[in-house]
Design a protein around this nucleic acid. Structure first.
Length: 746
DNA sequence: GAGTTTGAAACT
DNA sequence: CAGTTTCAAACTC
């Protein structure tokens, strides 16, 4: 699996065998990943093979990488800057090194790089493959893991990726692309047509060996996502053109010739031009598409996901990783800066957030977004569509998607993170692109456009956006233009500072960045059973401390999070419409009980919201039931409907949380709650821990007790051993309410 | 848009 | 751990 000889592989032109499938043959003979049985190319990776991936790889880095790569490519497409190549390269390197924790992997990748450099005259091109190779070995496990968790997931991703790439131009131009399935599909179609339409100059292309190598390498790179083996196979195919008539090759060739006109005229040169890469990308994309026709179905998702991903993101851990990676590199800082700048720019391509609960914001946003939907029947339509059905599925997708970025390899938390992306994507669709320029009425904006926008715009003045006061920071995202903050340090440029601060905060409270509201699986079923029933199992982790708001305003975190108050709450005069501290249901009966005139109105409102939410959730559940989108169960947003779940409310897995869990060696992270917790509460906490631990990995079973003696450890410890479903999936289910089927998905 | 209220976060 | 201060969102006007 770790065969470092990438260069050889790349250049290796062993005659492909035409037996069953060139891919397999190739793999068997050439693939450095031999150890890994890639029989089932894309989706069939058996998790078993990688049952015990390094803890470092716990998180689905593959996807991250994928996305990051895509992002990069986007960049290329958008701005064909020559230097991009170098950046790309750098990033790739950093990505590899992100895995630094795994010495094994790191060494391999480095070796590979060296080899690649030496082995080929095409500096850049060769490097890519090398890193790829490294990724292969490293990432495979994760891939498997994911797939195991959700069969069919991979294909979708691939399709998404491919689609995204193909339609990038259009997507870029049209902010609302994500919203419309049709448009996305159209784009895809167009893309294919375009490819087909492009003159067929296979011979010419073929002639340029160097170019082909590059192309192949890149293609493989892309392919890697779905399956490293596949990529290899593709490479082989390309090299030999085994199947000239084959659709894939056909397309590839066309693409290569079409998008790379220059290549035809001008022989490829060692330094890959952006054009070339573009071509390569297309090829890769095309290849993916061809290989996974079914993926087209998810075109719409692709947009959302990728777009969302492109949003800014806080890669706290990433940053550190990157730094580490670039330790040896004198350019480390410069690289980081570059990437940072990129992120900072409107076109931040790295949008996955490694950790933290950005998604929470997103969720909240989504929630309100939905509310908007109800309010705006037509105008908001585009947004609405995604938000209700597509978006949901998309969200789920996102959930499935691993954090993307070269740097996030370390972060295990992905499960939830995607949500954020989703929200982000939504935001992109909905409002971000529309009115990010006008930061006034921040709140309004947030509610309107931002509803879909996962990223909040903060307004910090003194905290420098480095404290939990800052919603952005708390959510794990960098501040962006729309923010009205002053002296903001929560920017990529200051990632070091951000990281440090974050760590500091985490040291104080390991779960500081963890979701504040935790939903247990019970909540899901509850909702399903009775729409009007507030998920009792969903509770604010620490409980609120409201004194004057009666838990009827967003001041109350419970209310804001759309959950009822629990025993953990120290609120006074609780009238939380989602459920009162005393345990009363909160909704109907409660509303009537609450007779105080002024308050009653609010309660009713809240109730209405709740009802809407419940209904929507039900609907969502139904929608989710649709297996189409994801083989994997769709994960409904806890607050998908109303009352946007603020900040990091929804149970999510954040890098910090993970870290916290890792730190758990120490007593308890959870803040001691004065009051006894209800059973469900306990469950929630447990789940939380499960989530954290499960996803985080290595520290599978940490048993700790809170000061109160409360058990925090996750019941799941044993589950961790489960080869097929790692914490990832399970966690998702628990953390985010899902449709019924999820539970039985096993 | 400015000012107030509120409660979480941070600090002591 | 409790009390106080700081802070920024939520809210009101």
């Amino acid at each position: 699996m770790d065969t470092p000889d990438r260069a050889t592989t790349t250049n290796n032109l062993n005659p492909p065998k035409f037996e069953d499938s060139p891919v397999f043959n190739f793999l068997n003979s050439l693939s450095p990943i031999k150890p890994v049985k890639s029989v089932h190319i894309t989706q069939t990776f058996s998790s078993i093979s990688f049952s015990s991936p390094p803890s470092v790889f716990t998180s689905p880095h593959v996807n991250s990488n994928k996305e990051s790569r895509f992002l990069r490519r986007h960049n290329l497409l958008d701005t064909s800057k020559p230097k991009v190549t170098s950046e790309d390269e750098n990033q790739t390197g950093s990505g590899e090194q992100a895995l630094t924790d795994s010495t094994h992997a790191r060494n391999n990748s480095r070796e590979l790089e060296k080899n690649a450099d030496k082995g080929t005259s095409i500096g850049d091109a060769s490097i890519e493959p090398a890193s790829e190779q490294a990724k292969f070995s490293i990432e495979l496990p994760q891939t498997l893991k994911y797939e195991s968790g959700s069969p069919g997931y991979d294909p979708i991703l691939c399709g998404d990726e491919a689609n995204t790439l193909l339609s990038l131009p259009s997507s870029e131009a049209a902010p609302d692309v994500a919203c419309s399935h049709e448009s996305s599909k159209k784009n895809l179609v167009e893309g294919e047509l375009h490819l087909h339409g492009i003159c067929q100059t296979e011979p010419k292309i073929d002639g340029t060996e160097c170019d082909w190598d590059n192309l192949i390498n890149n293609a493989s790179d892309m392919l890697i996502f779905s399956s490293p083996n596949v990529s290899e196979a593709f490479k082989d195919l390309m090299n030999k053109q085994l199947d000239p008539s084959g659709r894939i090759m056909h397309i590839v060739n066309q693409v290569a010739s079409g998008s790379g006109h220059e290549n035809e005229d001008h022989p490829p040169k060692p330094g890959l031009a952006s054009d070339t890469q573009y071509t390569q990308e297309n090829i890769a994309n095309v290849a993916l598409v061809a290989s996974n026709p079914c993926e087209k179905m998810d075109d719409e998702h692709v947009y959302v996901i990728h777009r969302g991903i492109r949003r800014r993101c806080l890669d706290f851990e990433m940053a550190s990783v990157r730094r580490n990676n670039s330790d040896g590199n004198s350019n480390a800082s410069s690289n980081a800066t570059k990437s940072d700048e990129r992120n900072t720019g409107g076109d931040s391509r790295r949008c996955f957030l490694p950790g933290i609960g950005l998604h929470l914001n997103a969720l909240a946003t989504l929630k309100e977004h939905r509310g908007m939907k109800n309010e705006k029947s037509s105008s908001g339509r585009q947004l609405n569509i995604p938000s209700s059905s597509s978006s949901l599925s998309q969200e789920h997708h996102l959930l499935l998607l691993p954090a993307s970025s070269e740097r996030d390899m370390e972060l295990p938390e992905n499960e939830v993170q995607p949500v954020e992306d989703c929200s982000q994507s939504l935001s992109l669709m909905a409002g971000e692109e529309f009115n990010q320029n006008s930061p006034k009425k921040k709140r309004r904006k947030v509610e309107i456009a931002g509803e879909s926008e996962s990223c909040k715009r903060c307004n910090c003045k003194k905290s420098k956006c480095l404290k939990l006061y800052c919603e952005c920071f708390a959510a794990g995202v960098y501040c962006i233009e729309p923010c009205s903050c002053q002296d903001c340090f929560n920017k990529p440029i200051h990632e070091d500072t951000v990281l440090q601060t974050r760590k500091q905060i985490e040291s104080r409270n390991p779960l500081a960045f963890a979701p504040k509201v935790i939903r247990s699986s019970d909540s899901v079923s509850e909702i399903a059973d009775d729409p009007n029933k507030t998920p009792a199992s969903a509770r604010h982790k620490r409980g609120c401390n409201c004194k004057k708001s009666s838990c009827l305003k967003k001041y109350c975190e419970c209310y804001q999070g759309g959950v009822g108050c629990s025993i953990s709450c120290r609120c006074e005069g609780c009238k939380n419409a989602f459920g009162r501290k005393d345990g009363s249901a909160g909704i109907d009966a409660e509303a009537e009980e609450e007779t105080e005139a002024p308050e009653k109105g609010e309660v009713e409102k809240a109730l209405q919201k709740t009802e809407i939410q419940n209904i929507e959730e039900n609907q969502n559940s139904a929608l989710q039931a649709t297996p189409l989108r994801l083989s994997r169960p769709l994960l409904p947003l806890p607050f998908s409907s109303k009352g946007k779940p603020p900040r990091s409310f929804i149970a999510t897995i954040s890098g910090s949380a993970l870290i916290a869990s890792q730190k758990l060696g120490k007593p308890n992270i959870l803040r001691p709650q004065v009051k006894l917790e209800k059973p469900h509460q306990t469950v929630a906490d447990d789940e939380m821990m499960d989530i954290i631990q499960g996803d985080s990995s290595p520290i599978a079973c940490i048993k700790t007790s809170s000061p109160n003696g409360k058990r925090i450890s996750s019941p799941n410890c044993e589950l961790g051993s489960s080869p097929t479903r790692r914490g990832g999936r399970k966690l998702i289910l628990h953390s985010i309410p899902s449709f019924p089927s999820l539970t039985h998905h096993h």
